[in-house]
Nucleic acid binder design. Sequence first.
DNA 1: ACACATGTCGTAAGCGATTTCATCCTGCCG
DNA 2: CGGCAGGATGAAATCGCTTACGACATGTGT
Lengths: 372, 372
Amino acid sequence: MSPAKSARTPQPTAAPPPAGGAPERRRARRTNPTAVKLDDVARVAGVSTASVSRALNTPELVSPALRERVVKAVRELNWVPNGPAKALASLRTRTVGALIPTLGHQNFALLVDTLQRELGKARYTLFIGCVDNSAELRIQQGFKMVEQGVEFLVLVGEAQPQELYDMLDSRNVAHVITYATSRKTGRPCIGFDNYDAAFRITGHLLELGHTNFAMIAPPDQMNDRIQQRIAGARDRLAQAGIAIRPQHFTRADSRAIEGGRMGLRAILAAPGSRPTALICANDYLASGALIEARALGISVPDELSVVGFDDTEMSAHLDPPLTTIRVPSRELGEEIARHILRVLEEGVNKPPPLLEAKLVMRASTAPPPTQR
Amino acid sequence: MSPAKSARTPQPTAAPPPAGGAPERRRARRTNPTAVKLDDVARVAGVSTASVSRALNTPELVSPALRERVVKAVRELNWVPNGPAKALASLRTRTVGALIPTLGHQNFALLVDTLQRELGKARYTLFIGCVDNSAELRIQQGFKMVEQGVEFLVLVGEAQPQELYDMLDSRNVAHVITYATSRKTGRPCIGFDNYDAAFRITGHLLELGHTNFAMIAPPDQMNDRIQQRIAGARDRLAQAGIAIRPQHFTRADSRAIEGGRMGLRAILAAPGSRPTALICANDYLASGALIEARALGISVPDELSVVGFDDTEMSAHLDPPLTTIRVPSRELGEEIARHILRVLEEGVNKPPPLLEAKLVMRASTAPPPTQR
DNA sequence: ACACATGTCGTAAGCGATTTCATCCTGCCG
DNA sequence: CGGCAGGATGAAATCGCTTACGACATGTGT
């Protein structure tokens, strides 16, 4: 560019640190030379980089004329800001992270879907990490996201590795826990009460007159939501002096439909009088049970009442339609998005009140056979 | 740290730009002073920042002793690298973006779930954007992701706004299109052939002897996948000299179960002889149709054969189990992840061959009533 | 013993934005 | 007409990390 500069030392073999004038070492560029930068925009617009930045980020601070020239230059050069550079300089990334167990559950998928849409409207971008029930994955993904600079982290359930919590605290990363109430950690939560909901739906079965219960639940390590659903059901039964026999409590290894089918088979194969009511920890298991019952010629709800938890889209269309607890996934997503914006843009860190998980009574429950 | 430096001008009230030695203006720090930086690690470890960086990123270049001291200091200080700074300096973000229509469809949810898991293993982080069929959203989210610095972008379907394609080309952003074949754009694709699959499943119905067809499909603007499914079915029927009567072709406003139910009602209410075969553009619509048929007392497959497209988890468990096309979402996710790593780490941009979308014959199809 | 690889490490120049200060211009008031 | 509050701009310092180069210490072949 400037052929006049002959003071340079083009020969790398020259004297190393001699006296002379300035050493003025030059270095090879590492960057993509074709990329358009803010400097280029500034040059084309005939203004300083500071003005370009202002024109774009705080237009009210510059004159309309300048603003217009800058916008024109931006369009002309087809410039897109460099996020990392922006983040480094401004200390803001406008990104949010969400750590969820899996997208294989419709409820989480819908929650994330809604969350992303709402955040997108406010020009935030969403990182997503599927971490199952694994503590390792949670830590790995959580750290990765914080490293990426998320300004907010959404977690599902209170049961998170202490290491993750400590890191969030020490680095001062705002976060919220969903699908839970602040029972143990006292951290901000946006969710509903799994325990109470399970308590209520079990009460519903008791009110119908059932006394002989079975339950199917997925593995629950690092999954306080399932733990609480189980506890809620257990406690409600205990109030009535009833307990689920061990052989009627099935752990579904798979948490989806197939797990429900196998779960019901296992329960029916177990010794002891056959239960008349089956509590499933989620709707996938419940629909599996419903399907298996039909296959086995067991009439629901005449011979067996079945309840689920979640109210997935399919649940209302099953035969018979499933009695369950409606989990408001989309509303949760909206509430979380609103909360995040409130924290990030207004500095108010006060989560909204608990949402309600309503009992949806449909046709899969009825009084037990003996009562008819 | 170095109390000897008395040349500084600690008093901010001192003379502004006097002659003297160097002006040496000092400026207020903008950063969070409590944050641990690489400098701190270097100081604690008693080495240079360059060595810390090397010890962490290219450990084979430093001596074991140095490496150990650095690792110790990192742990001691609880340091987490600053992603944006890293990205800015290295010109790498280790992030990938995925633009999908919605997470409300199980197939997309599973694809994203798998994609994230696989990328996560390789320490990449995934941005996600739900863009429906909206061109605006695609552009907005696409630009946002490129601004964030994604090294790769996953798109669903070839039908993307030209503006988005242009930007990706001009900024040289690697990308791949899934759920499609390279019919129009000639860009790298990882997917299966919607047209061919629809062609085949329609052939299956023809082979059973059906001559009177109906179809339910969701809106298909900006959705080449649905367009091709429709085209595949139409073309196969045309080969047999058959066409779907307009009144038997229903657009489901909602693309989920409810849409299928209403769709079937509309078809049955339409004038003309009642169709014996129903082609649904996805499994949600098909299961809705199945449910509605049962509610109306229409026997499937005796009076009406129904086929879907996707093979969602529920489809095998419907009553009757649905004949459909199996879309290999998880495999797609894996293939895409593998492809991305190949492009990013090995520089090979050659997508794998098309995946197969198999026809899964189950019990929702049978010969038409007249043939029995 | 000398020239030349080789292996380790430190110095300091970027990466591409934002933002602090300082400077320059006007307009207004006494 | 001098002084001054304000509004627009620009120059330049950062932001926290990577990495090109140079310096130095050893090892090797002749």
